[in-house]
Design a protein around this nucleic acid. Structure first.
Lengths: 351, 351
DNA sequence: CTGAAAGCGCTAACAA
DNA sequence: TTGTTAGCGCTTTCAG
């Protein structure tokens, strides 16, 4: 049996004033219009009875639930927990709760979950899902619900977004490889239906162009998922292309780890024979040998940034937030990159 | 400007019936008491207008928000995301949303967050925080709020809990080491204010007793956190004890990884010279060399189990759930354990 | 400064 | 089978 909760009415009865007075006395803003002595009496009674405001009831009345929805593809993906902590670090102290949902990058699920969140009356949504286009979130925004996207932008909309400077990251990495003397750099690209996969491939082409590195289309191979297995498969594909390369720039860390593993299986040493680079700087990378050279993106910071933008959207009547927030990235040079070998070891007969 | 939502009243106006009729027609249970034709008309109008029920309002009326609170120490800890997915996998299809909060294993935060969740009217709480005692969650349970704890039990209470069979895991691991010929097994224990730390240490003593392995108190050293750094520090402490050992059974994977790293730094080979074992089988372990021998616990399964128990607690008037659910664990033998060297390499002069 | 009253959107007795 | 009514707990006009 759920114990009855203390309500404003209980306090009103206890103190002999009207509920509306109690409501005012307990509201830090309205409190100033109440006699100090009365406020004190009410406060005391509230404390004594262990009063806790019912946010559901307040929400019904005010149309503000003090909760936000957070949509991510999959919480077990290592990059998302820090993002969530970042979001929480700004929202929680202000009294917001987050309802977190996993989309599994499934479009149907995504539209359904948006409805789920709206049904619960969230005051806003942070949308870190990564499908490249989705009308559902745009519709929610059009209906006036504050929305911020993370890691991606919704095309043809004025939904604010927070992204990491992928372009700069890829470019810095390619430059790093160039400085080590790598002339023939392969790219293992991510899934092209995910924004990061597509952005990083485009960035790779741009960077190559800027640095006057020739791009050999046969040295670009696209993974179907961001995981080690695909990294291994793509590396095998690169090898069997018969084209020479001395470095592999991968679209994320897991692809890179898979690639290094595949090299090892074939007796090819990273970084002595082939340099491999990642992207994201996911946790635990320090524990894996060779320590991966990668690009660190701000995960916690991205969460914070998105939350701050959402706050402004939710609270200001005239939002006036920047449409675009680009967070700087940082090159992290570790052990998986080394000077290019004098002679590329490929092509060579494969066992 | 938030676009006005369609309410029951709108549908009632549209179809010329009373709101309560609309409410019934849209409720799968009550629907059977309404003329089929009317139901159809109402359903059509609801669809046409894009009606979405307001769960806040319903919750206020029914005292059920269809949301549950989930308390964990820290979402960035690798073991929790799978647990959350497990919870979600049973609750989400039934229409429940989860409000996830991070306690950071801080007692004050923990009591505050329980209030936060109750203020939001959650129908129940799954509590995976790991402080060994806390009256706050017990109080919530006493007030009639359905509560299930995960990975730990609240002493002197009838709160149902789900735990992994730590005892069996530790025992199997110790037996595995014994079978490899290890006679002198050290233990790096986890923080003793966390239930897992304490349980596993107790299990280690029990197992040693059962298997007639002598326990040398100097070969038990306690970490202050479950991380690699502490694993390293504890290993150093073991070495400087001057006592011989050929294997280190660690209270979790991260401690084990830190220990192996510390061995490597000293030029000691794992597993040839010293075997090291972990606990949890956290993700990505396959990528780290030597691949860690560990005990796999059911994370997803634990989440599911806890959610199912909570469901029964929330829905049955006569709960009748088992107080204790113990999930089986599985020994995962990989590469960090090997036959004991003929002669223990310690003690020996330390550089 | 405080009280009265209305109402957020929905559900659930009770009536018809 | 449907309508009427009341009310969940709170905020917020409007009076006094």
């Amino acid at each position: 049996m759920l114990k009855k909760r203390i309500t404003l009415k209980d306090i009103a009865r206890e103190t002999g004033v009207h509920v509306s007075t109690v409501s005012r006395a307990l509201d830090p803003v309205e409190r100033k219009n109440i006699t100090e002595e009365v406020v004190k009496r009410i406060q005391a009674a509230a404390d004594a009875l262990g009063y806790r405001p019912n946010r559901i009831a307040a929400g019904l009345r005010t149309n503000r639930t003090m909760s936000v929805g957070v949509m991510i593809p999959d919480i077990t993906n290592l990059i998302f927990p820090p993002i969530l902590r970042g979001i929480e670090s700004v929202l929680e102290p202000l009294g917001y709760a987050s309802i977190i949902v996993n989309t599994d990058s499934d479009r149907d699920r995504e539209v359904r979950l948006i409805d789920v969140l709206r049904d619960r009356g969230v005051d806003g949504i942070i949308h870190a899902a990564v499908l490249r286009s989705d009308p559902s979130i745009a519709k929610a925004a059009q209906d006036g619900l504050p929305v911020v996207t993370l890691n991606r932008k919704v095309e043809f909309s004025d939904i604010p977004y927070v992204i990491n400077d992928e372009d700069a990251g890829i470019c810095q990495m390619l430059r790093h490889l160039r400085e080590l003397g790598h002339e023939r750099v392969a790219h293992i690209a991510g899934p092209q239906d995910l924004s990061t996969g597509q952005l990083r491939l485009a960035a790779f082409r741009n960077a190559a162009d800027d640095l006057s590195v020739a791009v050999d289309e046969e040295l670009i191979v696209t993974a179907t998922r961001f995981d080690e297995q695909e990294g291994g498969r793509c590396l095998a594909a690169l090898l069997s292309s018969g084209k020479a390369f001395t470095a592999v720039l991968c679209a994320n860390d897991r692809l890179a780890l898979g690639a290094i593993e595949a090299l090892r299986e074939r007796g090819i040493d990273c970084p002595r024979q082939v340099s491999v680079t990642g992207f994201n700087d996911m946790p635990l990378l320090e524990l894996i040998r060779p320590k991966l050279t990668t690009v660190r993106i701000q995960q916690h910071g991205a969460g914070r940034a998105a939350a701050n933008i959402l706050l402004r959207l939710m609270n200001a009547e005239t939002p006036s937030v920047d449409l675009e927030t680009v967070l700087p990235v940082e090159l992290v040079v570790r052990e998986s990159t080394a000077p290019a070998p004098r002679l590329p070891l490929f092509p060579r007969p494969l066992s």
